[in-house]
Design a protein around this nucleic acid. Structure first.
Lengths: 190, 190, 190, 190
DNA sequence: CATGAATGAGGTTTCATTCAT
DNA sequence: TATGAATGAAACCTCATTCAT
């Protein structure tokens, strides 16, 4: 047998890494970060504990990678052609994209929300999150301003809070939460 | 010398218990439940680790007592004379009481929100929380029904989600969140 | 009210002491020595933990006092007028007294047997127990010798082992063990 | 370098496991179960405390494994071809096997006897022990019945008690107890 | 790349004993 | 005599991380 090529190794790395990331996300979401052990992750991923440390420097590194990967996807939803002239359609799409993501990957959101309340974790993600939050805030303020809203800032802070509230309630009770109907209420707030 | 009276002992107990509860709430809110050790709590409270267990059967018991204490206060806000005939004033008072509590004791709310996403913790409090949530839901549904709202259930799920969203955003960013103005928006949803 | 007399104090002491001894014996027998806490004993006796240490220097002291008290009673059963001329009746009475004690106070025997296998405890009682065991052995050897038994020593070691075996089986299964019928078998061994 | 093979890992596990079992048995026998700490065991075995828990789920699990291992061997001694037609030879072999085991592994028997009197420990092994005791009881009752004994049940309870009595006396005083001669007396009881 | 035995620090909990009252 | 709050050592156990293979 010939030795594996560089590409093959790379492929293995990526595949294993994604597997680990996925498994870890699930477990973190289910049990919380502190209550999920590295052993559990490696067992669930079908690899040895030692190998975990080939891919991730530490348990904390693993967490970081999960979050950052998720946030990257997150920013992509806000597609506004001209920030000084935000269209309603663009915000509707933003909302719909977010709700779709919520439906597709509730585990990530569960983890995301749970971490937002753990100071030490939050600290390490604050910069990333604040940037995203700032961008979105700006877009909404501009939109409400162009609509002649009396207090665009307050309205924006309100609707972004509503977003998270809805996300949370959907996550906690996926079964009975009427996400689609509530989506219409949200659109009405624009 | 005569031993302390029952009253004296009780006073000591009450005082220490409250001290521990307060310290623990702060630390849980700051670090999360799992990442806060009993050692940290006892050190911060200025007592020995062992004494903790004179007052609380376990770390979990301590958490339960904190949460249940908070929830108790929570239910008191929902003062509705006739559940089948809910008045707008009553709901306004409910909202205002909650927002006031949010301002007075942000740590408790931080803890409360952080726990809602940790399955194992949530499980242990589920019964308590679901009862409260159920009661509130009923009141709002009745209210919206009496107002002739088309879909009282969806509207209720929406406004309760909004509540939590606002609570969370206020907790995360107490400084700039315009809680009072947003309160008016919420009232407008009734 | 006049101060208590010396006699009254003495009476209180003795009464409390006996109460503690009794309660402790029960709990030690039920849970084992190591698994019975001083708290449990004091609670069960209806006194404070601190007071326990007025009567007994330590938990170990308490154990010692129980055992020594029990053993004292034990020696009284071997009433032999002339050690060089042991009568069958005397041994029958010895057996019957022992079985009676077994029935009356199974807890003590349970504790006694459980301790016999814990080296550290055994060490502390060894001298006392060995003396008793030696006395009894002598009596039985003499008896069997006088009866013309071929190997009085072996026969003695056998019957004393039988004694303990029966005691143990009775203790473990008081309900169905046919103690009275087995008593007759034992008598037959004389 | 390639990783160890499955066989190598298994060999390590088996060896360490047996080492721990052996060390623990010795210490339990010497000090009693409750008074033997995991620290003592690990120190005596020359491993870290943590490693103990790689091999045994808990201290209790360790005890169980010791006992169950011992009991397994125990049942093997009772080789009866036809339970409804028990032969004297079979019982003699049963007795001899037991006495041999007693000589070979006095520590196990010491532990076994000491546990029978610790309610909490006994409870956890009760099912296992009762099954074995029941099987043996049945065999002896059948045997005595076939021999025309007047009261096979009492005779059985008696001889089983005798067994344990002899075991205990041998354990306590291995040096001077005339086990072989007493074996003959036991055979005479069949 | 891959394994899992091994460590050691730190977690929760228990409890005999002391001591101010 | 009597109380129970308080301590501190030590118990059982967990787990991120390392390392020989």
């Amino acid at each position: 047998v010939s030795p594996r090529t560089k590409e093959q190794f790379e492929a293995i790395r990526t595949e294993k890494e994604n597997l680990i990331l996925e498994v870890a996300l699930n477990l973190f979401a289910k049990n919380g970060y502190a209550s999920t052990s590295v052993s559990m992750i490696s067992k669930e991923a079908g690899i040895s504990k030692g190998l975990m440390y080939n891919y991730f420097a530490s348990k904390e590194d693993l967490l970081k990678r999960i979050i950052i990967g998720g946030l990257k996807q997150f920013t992509m939803f806000l597609n506004v052609k001209d920030v000084s002239n935000v269209q309603k359609d663009e915000l509707i799409e933003f909302i719909d994209d977010n709700l779709q993501a919520l439906k597709n990957d509730p585990d990530f959101y569960k983890l995301y929300f749970s971490l937002a309340f753990q100071a030490e974790v939050f600290a390490m993600l604050e910069a990333e999150m604040m940037k995203i939050f700032g961008d979105i805030t700006t877009v909404f303020i501009n939109y409400y301003q162009s609509k002649g809203e009396t207090d665009p800032f307050t309205k924006t802070r309100f609707i972004l809070a509503v977003f998270d509230g809805i996300g949370i309630h959907y996550i906690i009770d996926t079964e009975t939460f009427p996400l689609d109907k509530i989506r219409d209420i949200m659109i009405g707030l624009l």
